[in-house]
Design a protein around this nucleic acid. Sequence first.
DNA 1: TTGAAAGCGTTACCAG
DNA 2: CTGGTAACGCTTTCAA
Lengths: 354, 354
Amino acid sequence: MRPTLQTVADAVGVSRSTVSNAYSNPDQLSTELRERIFEVARQIGYPGPNPAARTLRRGRAGAIGVLFTDSLPYAFIDPYAVQFLRGISEAAERYDSGLLLVPLAGDEKAGVHAVQNAAVDGFCVYCVPEWHWATSAIRARGLPIVTSEQHDSSRPDMFYVGIDERAAARAAAAHLVALGHRRVALLSDYVVPERVNALVTIASPEEVRYYTAGERLRGFRDAFAEAGVAWADISVLSAAGNSREHGARAAAYALDRADRPTAILAATDLLALGVLDALAVRGLRAGHDVSVTGFDDIADAASAGLTTIRQDPIERGRRSGELLLDPPDDPAQRRVVLPTELVVRASTGPAPRS
Amino acid sequence: MRPTLQTVADAVGVSRSTVSNAYSNPDQLSTELRERIFEVARQIGYPGPNPAARTLRRGRAGAIGVLFTDSLPYAFIDPYAVQFLRGISEAAERYDSGLLLVPLAGDEKAGVHAVQNAAVDGFCVYCVPEWHWATSAIRARGLPIVTSEQHDSSRPDMFYVGIDERAAARAAAAHLVALGHRRVALLSDYVVPERVNALVTIASPEEVRYYTAGERLRGFRDAFAEAGVAWADISVLSAAGNSREHGARAAAYALDRADRPTAILAATDLLALGVLDALAVRGLRAGHDVSVTGFDDIADAASAGLTTIRQDPIERGRRSGELLLDPPDDPAQRRVVLPTELVVRASTGPAPRS
DNA sequence: TTGAAAGCGTTACCAG
DNA sequence: CTGGTAACGCTTTCAA
């Protein structure tokens, strides 16, 4: 039989509570007794308090959950996600907390089960909109959530760490406007419900259901509208997923047309790098024949000479974790908006005169 | 008061077991009753079975633990570690299991506590030697471990997924031997107990306490010994950590000497890339003035033209996860040795005649 | 400083 | 298919 607290207590000749205190409240007993208890525990092979029992009794798990809309491995594929996790892990480590990555794979039923089964004290969600069933599943458990999406800000259990998506996107677009670009294409995933690489028609950015994609499109639109370019005259490309490959494939729908745009604004660096790949294949020069902007400023952006919007995913993760592990009393502090910055590199240049 | 199984049972007018079965053993009751139970649960706001209670009762956590000797954020800094985690996460997702990253930060006491507190069914450890206290802490809990290090193979609770470190390192060294290199330096972290960048003296690779570092040094030695180069004539560089920066700094101790080696063999790609940085700073040409080899074949190795040993971290992670989540009955299958391959690129070339 | 008692919320077993 | 009983292993009053 596996030894328990009781076994140790019996062997030492004290009560359960005393052994429990030895582990969890060292100042409640004499040092000698404590040492004696540990000594006996070692001899018997007692592994220390059972985590599940402890969590059950205490009502605290000592771990924070992390949730991705995409499959779990995506967390380690997208460089932005990796940095975000790195930030969370810094916070977790500081608060002696674990990090539980919860698989949302498969259908809704399996995902809800995964959320319900997670022994955690709260969730950091990544790219999970408020209307997503995962959000409801977490709320049903009464656990706090840190999100970077739009949400009902009156809820005391939802924290926010994000950036001004719209203003940041607008800055990228304004940069291109200043360079004289008027015939442009926007490229993003999650603009339409289907996961396809295609040229799509969207009445307005308002109809995009995903927050981040919608906001960035809105920001792009704002800047061009100000320059007199109507939304209807802007091409929108849908990417089937956030990867270089999808970016390259989706870009083809704009690059191979007669009225090729002079600039392509991508919603992420990964997609933008794909556009650069597509340009290279066609013998087109980035920043010359076609200008390209990204978003995030991941590590590869610099070496690729990509003009982009810089944000700090590590800081974002760190603040998210801190909010969850040490919630400030002041509601105003539960909303963190981080700065962004336009980084101009070689992938953008004056619009070619046609 | 928060609703529990009991609350729901009372409201529906059935027993606890029936409600429990509705969630965990759907085939134990009629579909209508099941639906009715869920309906009532939703109305009451019952969040589903409490994970801690379930784990306690079932004796299964539904998560696997991951442990790094280094700090938690390291998992997201080292590109090899990221890929390894990606592999584990693929396995976890397939088995509907979570992934708990356990912080080993700070001192031994805190680390042991973290291990004891982790609600998991087993551990994948990364760079944790068998003699490390973390190993004992896991064993004390009676949980299975997957390691990639040397270990007591008679233990039924230790699984192994790794590569033939020594043979792989030997292949890299043999390649340099064939190119005529005889005055060489080896570069690795964990060769001495201190975390320093320095030229160190090691009587033989056998005295290196860390398995991976030791094996790779042994492999290097083997190949050069065969070519008549004595261990005493080989410089050993210690890196304070596994990063480009440390690699570059440690390399300085060989590159700035009068009897500069014609080749540097690094124990990881990250260190090797640092060596390339150090060469560039000095105006030396890799593969010409000084040859460099790495180990792992991370993504950046290809673009840097680094000759290296390729191994597949994703596969390694995947197999590790599978072993833990679905242990084969046959003990022979609990030991997986994955293949490696020498990839020759531009960073190695014939030894310059001096 | 110690100990007795009362759960924490669930699931396994077994008889009906 | 249903329901009672008995754990699972611990922490937390509160009184001694």
